[in-house]
Amino acid sequence: MSITILYFASLREALGVEREQLSLPPGIRDVARLRVWLLARGEDWAPLAAPRIRAAVNQVLASDATTVADKDEIAFFPPVTGG
């Protein structure tokens, strides 16, 4: 299963990554499991663990339970501050 992940704003700067293309092992079926799997890659990914970090799947706000599927575009970002 191959997905694209985007990071925005302060999270992008903290991680030093804007975008990555990943092949996921079987079993990563929702946002919660994806986040755990990403965090397991090492300490550098710790900023992704902050509870305030929100997720979107295919450009729609997602929850921990939102399904992740092949070719999805997942985004992680801090609370929004526009306007």
Binding site: F8, F77, P78, P79, V80, G82, G83
Partner: peptide
Amino acid sequence: IMDYLKTQAPFWKKEETANGAHWVDA
């Protein structure tokens, strides 16, 4: 529309001041 935009639309502000740049908190 403004109240929803402020809290739901994905925009992020970064301010530059004489002390450096920082991301604005929600």
